[in-house]
Computed example of a mutant assay.
Amino acid sequence: PPDLIAWRARPAGRVGFHNDCFLASDTDVGTYDEDPALRARQRAVMQALGDIAPFGGETCNPADEAGARPRTDCADILGEGAAFNLTYLNDSYYRRAFHERWIAGGCMDQVRRSMGYRFALGAAEVPQRTTPGARFEVSLAVQNLGWSRPMNARPVEIVLVHAETGEVRRLPASGVDARDWGPGETAARLGVATPVDLAPGRWRVLLALPDADPRLVGDARYAIRFANADDAAKGQGWDAALGAFALGAEITVD
């Protein structure tokens, strides 16, 4: 509608878009206007919206529209999935014309991996030393291999594990919001305050993105898991008990 086309997406906007005939015809079976120029504007608005709010839906039977030209190839779903920042797609309907063709075309696994966000750590820099009460900074290169970004706020934590005693401390990071980690690579700088009572010695450094809900924040099953494979040689890997990714680095508290 004209009022939606005139709307300008803002970070505070939380209205998502569900397309229940995604890729099914030129108009997505009535989702968009029949006029090509107006339809192009509508699609552009929805693409912009998908960058800051959830976009998803399902396919449908192209026969629901006379003369429909469905977009069923792997190139179609991979191109438009990325363009609209696809976060979810009904896996049960309408499989015959779409999902089964993507399976035959060899791209279904890529589609599944790409929906939503998929973080991988590219690089991490951790200072060698800190002192109680001081601040330090952790620099990250985060790759988002998915088509979208997280829509809900999440804590970002540096988790420290004492090399000798096994004590665990979770330190909130400032100056970072995981919702800013859109598709592609993002350089993030995390500010961390060293607790005044932090014991001296060597501490292993991990990165955690737990759920923000107080009922789930301590449940590792709800933490975002990084896509990196475990690498014992680098000391990097997922810690299922802590719900955190080991950066393969240590920091010494004097």
Rank of each mutant, 00 (worst) to 15 (best):
T72I: 11
G116V: 02
L121S: 12
C107A: 05
D91P: 07
R118Q: 12
F84C: 02
E80L: 14
G81P: 08
A104F: 01
Y117C: 11
Y88K: 11
R112V: 14
F84S: 01
H99C: 00
L89D: 07
A123Q: 15
A104D: 05
N90L: 10
G116H: 09
C74H: 05
G79C: 05
Y117D: 06
I77Q: 11
R96D: 10
T72P: 10
A82I: 00
S114R: 12
A124Q: 13
T87C: 12
T87F: 06
G79H: 12
M108D: 15
F119E: 11
E80C: 03
R95K: 11
S114N: 12
Y94R: 04
M115I: 09
V111I: 09
A75V: 02
R101L: 05
C74K: 08
C74E: 03
Q110G: 12
D109G: 12
R95T: 02
C107P: 05
V111T: 06
F98I: 01
T87R: 15
A82W: 05
G106T: 02
M108F: 15
D73K: 11
F98T: 01
A104Q: 02
G106F: 04
M108P: 04
G105Y: 00
L89P: 05
E80I: 00
A75K: 10
G79R: 13
R113H: 13
A123F: 15
A123E: 15
D91I: 04
Q110M: 10
Q110I: 08
R96Q: 11
M115N: 06
G105P: 02
A75R: 10
A82D: 10
V111A: 06
G81Y: 04
D109V: 09
